[in-house]
Computed example of a mutant assay.
Amino acid sequence: MNQKISLANEGVFPIVKDKEGQVLPKAPATGITVAGTIQGEGKLAGIPSLFIRFSSCNLRCIWQLPDGTYSRCDTPYASFDANGIQQITVDDVLALVKHNLGPIRHIVITGGEPLLQKDALIELAARLKSELQLHLTIETNGSIFNAQVAQQIDLFSISPKLANSTPNPAKLAALGLSPSGPLKFHGERRLNLSALQAYIDVCRSADKAFQLKFVVGQAADEQEITSAYLNRLTGWAVSDIMLMPLGATQEELQQTTPMVLEMAIRNGWRFTPRVHIDLFGSKPGV
């Protein structure tokens, strides 16, 4: 079919060769001379991987940090400010992956929200599996479920958004934003229990892996995770619950990490660091 996909400006990353296999003139943002990086979060943290970043998202996350300042989505170029979009065919994505794989066997499909482009995603995931036999992780906010996509995925990294992520007048005013589009509807769309349960059910029936990865920035998030999510979902184990400190920079992470670490230990949940920020800082393409 060779459908077109809208990718964020990073596209397939980090890479050192173009779709024809020619060496790119500029080194990847990692500063490393080979293609690939590591998965920085969750159950597969530390695994060498290539990333494919889809453009556009149905949510607009703006969190409040403990000190009262605001932190919006750490990939705004795939949500808030979708500029530099690449329109690229599935064939070309496959070519970029093939020329940059080396020994890497893990692909992370991320966004934005990849499920917004479900038809192209279905084709891409199926061909990555059938032609290259790769392990596929999808990073999703869990608000959209598609059974055909789910058939192709090995690890579902689901990040349900807590109430702290919802835009409000104070947040919008501080960031100079207007309450339109997803900024207006974020609160209505962020929580979809039926979609989350469908992901869990698929994983339990087909021996696939999943993680519910909550971005935590306030003490009140602990009760919300339990009452709004875990008490209303079935089929999960404590080892599937991940807490990730809110923050796109080292300075922001210093505010939230001690609180989140204690919260994870208190509940028996898993703490996930953001290794890529530790290694490369807050920048795209790493």
Rank of each mutant, 00 (worst) to 15 (best):
K118A: 12
P114G: 01
I122L: 03
R60M: 13
S71Q: 13
Q39V: 15
E139W: 03
Q86C: 06
Y70W: 06
L44G: 09
I52P: 00
V108P: 07
K98A: 12
N146P: 07
D92T: 03
E131F: 07
K43E: 12
V149L: 04
L121A: 03
I109R: 04
I47P: 11
Q87H: 14
Q64E: 15
F54H: 09
G68S: 04
L94T: 07
D67M: 02
I47K: 15
S130I: 11
F145C: 06
G46L: 03
S71H: 11
G36M: 03
C61P: 08
L134F: 02
W63V: 11
N100F: 05
S49C: 15
L50E: 03
L115V: 08
L134Q: 01
I104W: 05
I104N: 08
T69G: 10
A150N: 05
A82G: 12
V93H: 02
F51H: 08
Q87F: 11
E113M: 04
E139A: 03
C61V: 02
V34P: 10
P66Q: 06
L59H: 05
Y77D: 07
L128Y: 06
Q64W: 06
K129M: 01
A95R: 15
I88P: 02
I52H: 00
L50W: 03
E123Y: 00
L96C: 08
Q86E: 11
T140I: 07
A120V: 01
P114A: 04
G102D: 05
I138D: 00
Q39N: 14
K43I: 11
T137G: 02
Q151T: 14
Q148M: 12
V97E: 08
R105C: 11
R53E: 01
F145S: 02
Q151L: 13
K98G: 10
V93L: 03
V34L: 14
V90Q: 05
D74F: 12
I107F: 07
V34R: 15
D74H: 12
P66R: 02
G36A: 00
